[in-house]
C-alpha cells in the first residue's frame, strides 16, 4: 500500500535527508521510530504528499504520487490519505460535526451522517458533536483529530506523534483507538513517533 524507493529530501539551503525504503502492505500497520531531528515529520509530509520529494518515488496503492501534478495530488490526498497531526488542527469557526462533515465532503462530496455518528460514538464524541472544537478538552480534541483522520475511509492514515503528550493510560487508549479505527476502515496505518511506548504495539518498525 505504501512503497517508497530512494526517497531523498533536501530543504532549500538546509538539511538533507535520505530515507530507508518502506514497503507496507494494505491494512498493515507501521511505526516509524527515531529521535527528534532525524526528519520524521519530513518523511510524513513527503508520504502524504504535502511536501514534494527531491528525488525518489512514493507509491500509495497503485498511484505514484511523486509523479502527480499539484491539482491531481490535492485530489488524491483529499480522497485517499488521512492525517492525524501532532498539534490538532481544526476549522475553529465550525463545530465538531461540521468539521467532520467538511472532511467528508471534500473532495468526494460524501454526506454520510451514519458514519459520522458511528465514528463519534466509538470515539466517545457523540455528546460533543454540536460543540465548538475549542470548547473540548485536550483528550477530546485528540479524539476529534483521530476521527478527522479516518472519517473519509482513507487508504492510509499517517499519524504524527499521536501519543507524545499523553500519560501511559491515554497512550494505550489512543493507540488502541487508532488501530481499531484503521482496521474498521480498512486503512493502513503509519505512526511516526519517538515514543518508545509505541514500539511494543507494532511489529513492523522502521528506525530512522
Amino acid at each position: 500500500m505504501v512503497k517508497t524507493d530512494g526517497l531523498h529530501f533536501q530543504y532549500p539551503g538546509g538539511e538533507a535527508f535520505d530515507f530507508p525504503n518502506i514497503d507496507l502492505s494494505a491494512k498493515d500497520h507501521l511505526a516509524v521510530l527515531g529521535p527528534s531531528g532525524v526528519g520524521k515529520t519530513t518523511l510524513l509530509h513527503l508520504l502524504s504528499g504535502i511536501l514534494p520529494a527531491s528525488s525518489g518515488t512514493i507509491f500509495i496503492g497503485n498511484t505514484e504520487i511523486t509523479s502527480l501534478d499539484r491539482k491531481a495530488l490535492d485530489k488524491f490526498r483529499g480522497s485517499h490519505i488521512g492525517l492525524v497531526f501532532q498539534r490538532y488542527h481544526f476549522v475553529k469557526s465550525l463545530n465538531v460535526e461540521e468539521n467532520l462533515q467538511l472532511r467528508q465532503y471534500f473532495p468526494s462530496k460524501l454526506k454520510d451522517k451514519e458514519r459520522r455518528e458511528a465514528i463519534a460514538e466509538r470515539l466517545g464524541l457523540k455528546a460533543h458533536l454540536k460543540k465548538k472544537v475549542t470548547q473540548l478538552s485536550q483528550g477530546q480534541q485528540q479524539r476529534v483529530s483521530i476521527a478527522l483522520g479516518l472519517i473519509h475511509k482513507p487508504k492510509v492514515v499517517f499519524a504524527d506523534e499521536p501519543t507524545s503528550n499523553l500519560d501511559d493510560v491515554n497512550c494505550e487508549r489512543v493507540l488502541g483507538l487508532l488501530k481499531e479505527e484503521a482496521k474498521l476502515c480498512g486503512s493502513s496505518l503509519v505512526i511516526i513517533t519517538h515514543d518508545q511506548r509505541v514500539t511494543e504495539h507494532f511489529k513492523n518498525q522502521v528506525v530512522l
Partner: peptide, 16 residues
C-alpha cells in the same frame, strides 16, 4: 493560515 493549510490537506486546491 493553519486552517487554510489544513483545508489543503483535505484536498482543497488553491483556487477553492
Amino acid at each position: 493560515r493553519q486552517e487554510l493549510a489544513l483545508l489543503r490537506t483535505y484536498g482543497l486546491g488553491t483556487r477553492k
